[in-house]
């Protein structure tokens, strides 16, 4: 299958390893990954902060970059960006764009998937041949869970990973407190939510906390790093891309180095 990869602005700039892993994984599964070079950002941060005029060119850009009918599916290693494309682009296009943009958005929205959806629903695989011999706990991010309704797809993918010790995260469906600009505008409340999430993650004794969204992982990881915890964060794609031939090495943590 010819799959368009949307790196997301955050993934491209700050968390390239998650995007690399997505590309490697899909390539390993025999698919042709294309990266439309003019892609930038989905505009989610703008819309969620209350700005709907400003992201019109971003919505247009996305539709142009991925509208190409030879791209059969569009994937992104982010539940919230996929949510934005599927739920918000149309709102922006209809309100501040034009009919042509609304049509383009509709076409591209229908073939847009978050990684676990693409793998399980479209490509029909749960065992991707991965090997990851560590204790892992999974945080289902809010947008994957409640906006995209990915359900247990990520967990099914993780269960099939060879060597993994998958442990359940208590209160898994609770928000980590990120919420984009919420973490800055309401930093105190966000911190209180993060503290509970970090406590639950640590209670699992996991080496790795994983999720399908680098933004939430940045938040949880930032909290773990601040208290110098031994648990690190890795994107789901990085675990699924890891094999015996090319294993994913765990990033050092201060606790581990001590």
């Amino acid at each position: 299958m010819r799959i368009g990869l949307f790196a997301t602005c955050l993934g491209d700039t700050l968390f390239p390893d998650a995007v690399k892993a997505t590309a490697v994984l899909l390539t390993r599964l025999g698919h042709h990954v294309v990266f439309p070079p003019e892609q930038t950002c989905c505009g989610q941060m703008h819309v969620n902060t209350g700005y709907q005029r400003e992201p019109v060119p971003l919505v247009r850009g996305f539709a142009e970059q991925f509208g190409d009918p030879s791209i059969e599916a569009v994937v992104m290693p982010s539940g919230s960006c996929a949510g934005s494309v599927r739920h918000q682009h149309r709102i922006v296009a209809e309100r501040y764009g034009d009919a042509a943009l609304a049509d383009a958005v509709t076409a591209v929205e229908a073939k847009t998937y978050e990684l676990s959806e693409l793998l399980v629903d479209v490509l029909g695989v749960t065992d991707v041949g991965a090997w990851f011999p560590y204790r892992v706990t999974y945080h289902p991010t809010c947008h994957s869970l409640r906006m995209l309704r990915v359900g247990d797809k990520p967990l099914r993918l993780l269960h099939a990973v060879d060597g993994i010790d998958l442990v359940e995260l208590p209160e898994a469906d609770a928000c980590c407190g990120f919420g984009g600009t919420f973490a800055v505008k309401n930093a105190d409340t966000s911190t209180a939510m993060l503290q509970d999430k970090v406590r639950d993650v640590l209670s699992t004794g996991a080496d790795v906390c994983t999720a399908g969204d680098s933004s939430c992982l940045m938040h949880i990881g930032g909290g773990l790093s601040r208290i110098k915890a031994g648990t690190r964060t890795l994107h789901l794609a990085q675990i699924l891309a890891s094999t015996r031939t090319s294993p994913c090495t765990l990033p050092e943590t201060e606790a581990a180095a001590r």
Binding site: T13, L14, P16, A183, T191, L194, G221, G222, S225, R226
Partner: peptide, 15 residues
Amino acid sequence: GWTDSRDVPAPPRRT
């Protein structure tokens, strides 16, 4: 407000 309770990773060497 962010860095009161969370670190930010350094940008990677390469995008």
